[in-house]
């Protein structure tokens, strides 16, 4: 069955969710990935939304934001932000999804300032809940467009901490967890080695290692067991088409 790049990203993101996990879902692409995971390999996953919603069953109907009426109807819990985000700090949250304008070699993400905070060229909207999710979820999955100016050697500003300066620096800062995967429109990167540097782990069908390295702002190294991202299965695509009734991601 044919599939779009975004559908492949959704399925790749869905595969990062394991059954019975508690997951910070976020919006847009990850919310669809959560739906696919629930309908395939993770029927007992729980989705959390920082505005104050917990859900078992994914919402039916188009969501522009996580607080739209379809996400309230049939929720497991509608409550406050602290009740939901406090679960991160309590250590209950297995995985969280975030996006970002810039990510660096060590998985640090910037959504605040391009050009440093004292005299920035561009003011981006800021953290929202991303800094909290990156700091306190057991595994962080970042979703990015794979462009050279987005995957950079070092971000100007760390909104959401990845492995900071590598080595033990994340642990020294008082954090556990960290980025587990970066799902892009060309590939999947994963942390590797003592610095937890992001390596090329999986190449999406139709893309090449050379092309991916060309679109990465650092000297991207290859994971020893590098492979090709398996295309969506019939079952995964069928689940995706149930969630994405209107074909938004097609």
């Amino acid at each position: 069955m044919p599939f779009s790049t975004q559908e492949l990203m959704i399925v790749a993101a869905a595969r990062e969710i394991r059954d019975e996990e508690i997951v910070f879902v976020g919006m847009r692409l990850p919310i669809t990935a959560y739906g696919v995971a629930r309908l395939t390999h993770a029927p007992n996953a729980v989705g959390l939304f920082e505005c104050g919603i917990a859900r078992y069953v994914p919402a039916e109907g188009m969501l522009y934001t996580m607080a739209d009426p379809p996400n309230q109807l049939g929720a497991a819990w509608t409550t406050g932000l602290i009740q939901i985000m406090g679960q991160l700090q309590r250590g209950r949250v297995d995985a969280g999804f975030i996006g970002g304008a810039e990510i660096d070699r060590l998985g640090n993400i910037n959504t605040s300032y391009i050009g440093g905070f004292a005299d920035p060229r561009v003011k981006l909207p800021g953290s929202g809940g991303a800094a909290d999710i990156a700091a306190m979820a057991k595994r962080l999955i970042a979703i990015m467009n794979h462009e050279r100016h987005r995957l950079v050697e070092k971000v100007d500003y760390v909104t959401s901490p990845g492995y900071l300066d590598g080595g033990t620096s994340r642990r020294d800062a008082g954090l556990s967890g960290g980025p587990a995967a970066v799902v892009t429109d060309r590939a999947i990167l994963r942390p590797h080695g003592p610095d937890n540097e992001l390596y090329l782990a999986s190449v999406h069908p139709g893309h090449s290692i050379d092309e991916i390295r060309e679109h990465t702002g650092w000297d991207l190294k290859l994971m020893p067991d590098i492979g090709e991202t398996p295309p969506p299965t019939t079952r995964e695509l069928a689940a995706l088409h149930i969630i994405d009734k209107d074909g938004f991601w097609r």
Partner: peptide
């Protein structure tokens, strides 16, 4: 008191 934003430059800006 909290654990969040440790490691984030929010603490600097």
């Amino acid at each position: 008191a909290m654990r969040s934003i440790l490691g984030s430059d929010i603490l600097r800006s």
